[in-house]
Design a protein around this nucleic acid. Structure first.
Lengths: 213, 213
DNA sequence: GTCTATACTTGGATAGAC
DNA sequence: GTCTATCCAAGTATAGAC
């Protein structure tokens, strides 16, 4: 899958260890963004973690910024499968919120969202980064909207809160909660919020069930 | 007020143009953080905007980071009076949400929240900055909690959503909406959300009125 | 208090050997 | 494809003249 064309900036035909070092660099870039943030994710720092030379970043990706974007793609991909699974295994809104709590906890542990937040904050003032990052964040909004639409189908709440609007709020809230949790070093307020939302969601589920029967 | 002691790092007694340049530097730091972000807010860049020399930053503040914090203090102060006024002039929840929409719009125009977001994102990985920024963000949570408690007093919603928890969500949401709005260059989704919240708030106000009569 | 000059460090990026 | 060596730009911070 990573071999299918169109993404590589230099090589065209597959080469020996090329794919390996590319992968190592991307993984190292993710780890670096997560652990020392965007400001600390320099070419030298990333290459050091990848165990290879700094110059290779420019050979393989053309610039550090492009490697940063590749890192963003990588976490987006893994998050995507996780979120997708989360939605599929949830039967009602209450399930979904409880699953989301678990995923949020995981994301915090593994620093996935930190990478997003760092990239978004940095993209704000990096002209060539902004549209790229925006394009990589947008799918989350549509994904959230689809999930919400699905989970809210037949619920009275759907009229009060259109899925698209609610989805936007959810994505923003998720990012904001992550920022605050990392800043304060405590995630309890955020988790309590998920618990609270879970209770409200369960209430909505009951209304929905009553309506159906 | 800015003359009251304890804040200056070098001077102890007041000096000629000192206070002026200090103020100019703080204002320039705010503008720089707003316009080119944390990464671009270097000593040279800020000094250039303040129309004075780079070395003065170290003389007056000791380090660039401390000037950044002073900038954060400055926007916090102005935002505080604005938010306070907003809460005081609102009679019910619906009023409050509508006022918040206006303030959000202003904040976006003038980039106040951008400064917060940049500092929060940067503080994540700057050990000496993190506790300082955290201490400056915390008041917003308590302020929001107080306002929500006040506005929700006597409303049936207060039992479903405790003020402290709701306040945390509001602060996180505010930051997240700001990030997304700046990233995408469009604030409509966020404003639509405020409008939606306004309608729900008005409903709650009606319930509350009914209960009272 | 403010400026000039400068020491020191780090980072992006390229050239060229292997 | 990978490494060494290097250039150049930009940043923090300090010393010392005014």
């Amino acid at each position: 899958m990573a071999r299918a064309g169109g993404k590589r900036s230099v090589e065209t035909s597959g080469s020996p260890g090329s794919a390996q070092t590319r992968a190592a660099l991307v993984e190292a870039a993710v780890a670096t963004l997560r652990e020392v943030g965007f400001a600390g994710a320099s070419a030298r720092e990333i290459a050091g973690r990848a165990g290879c030379n700094q110059a290779l970043i420019f050979y393989h990706f053309g610039s550090v910024a492009k490697l940063h974007l590749a890192a963003l793609d990588a976490v987006s991909a893994t998050r995507n499968v996780r979120y997708q699974a989360m939605v599929e295994e949830s039967e009602n809104l209450g399930d979904l919120v409880r699953a989301a709590r678990t995923v949020f906890d995981e994301d915090l542990d593994q620093g996935h969202v930190t990478v997003l937040v760092e990239m978004i904050a940095a993209a704000q003032f990096t002209p060539e980064l902004r549209p790229e990052v925006a394009a990589r964040i947008r799918p989350w909004r549509t994904f959230a909207a689809d999930s919400v639409r699905d989970a809210l189908a037949g619920s009275p709440a759907a009229r009060l809160l259109p899925p698209e609007e609610l989805a936007h709020a959810i994505v923003a809230l998720y990012l904001g909660l992550e920022m605050l949790a990392n800043l304060e070093g405590e995630r309890e307020p955020a988790l309590a919020l998920f618990d609270r939302a879970g209770k409200v969601a369960s209430l909505l589920d009951i209304f929905k069930r009553k309506k159906k029967s």
